[in-house]
Amino acid sequence: MKQAGKIVRIVGLVVVSVAVLMLIILSAATKPSSGDKVWDSRTTVGSLNAKNYYVQYTDLACPYCSVFSRNLMDNFEEFKRDYIEGKDILYEVRVTDFLYEYGEHKTGMSRWGAAGTYCATQEDKFWEYYHAALKSLWKDYHSKGIGVSKESPMIEDMTKDYWVKIGEKVGFDKAEFASCMDSGETVEAIQKNTAKAAKSANGMPYFVFNKFVSSGFDNNWGWDYVKEYLDAGLRAN
């Protein structure tokens, strides 16, 4: 009798564990597409009237977001040819400061990255700044194994100036760009966007590719997996 009770307890434990795991996976992975509309056409690539609409929520302080975005950047010509033009996709990148607002540490990196991107977008230089930022992060940290995953050493020496310098590289005036990053209007706009993103996103990166919705990306994945995501969106339409 005692033996049977123990077995029932074990079976119960297993059933509850599986149920909790399934709930987590379902809640994290299958949020419905909310019929998103373009937030800012300057952060898109593709026709605004495209048949397929893809949205990527990201945060420049999130290493897993960088892996996805860097793969996309490194294969941008193929991406544009085979997907944007070939499959008629409108692709929008929404940069947030999700990790600053909700993250473990109030790291400035997330806010500064979002601020720099916002200021560049106002001058219609989103893609130039975004790609320059990804390249800088790779060169200075990620290629050295810093800030690439939860087990790796963290980025400790990040300053606002790092993001201003990226602005300079893209062609902005240093003082003006720094002033834009600090302005109340910039901070307000970022906070508003991040709050909107957090209504659906559980974490970063977050993808709404047509009806395919997914959160997260493995930092060991490459361009082949980015294509899996892009194809998944096409299949889910």
Partner: peptide
């Protein structure tokens, strides 16, 4: 998963209990 990005499996549970404050403690 990646607690820093808020995609660790523990995060949805913590977020349910602590609301958005759950993200902040997911890493630890």
């Amino acid at each position: 998963g990646c607690p820093t990005c808020g995609t660790a499996l523990i995060t949805p549970i913590l977020a349910t209990i602590f609301s958005t404050g759950g993200y902040a403690i997911a890493g630890v």
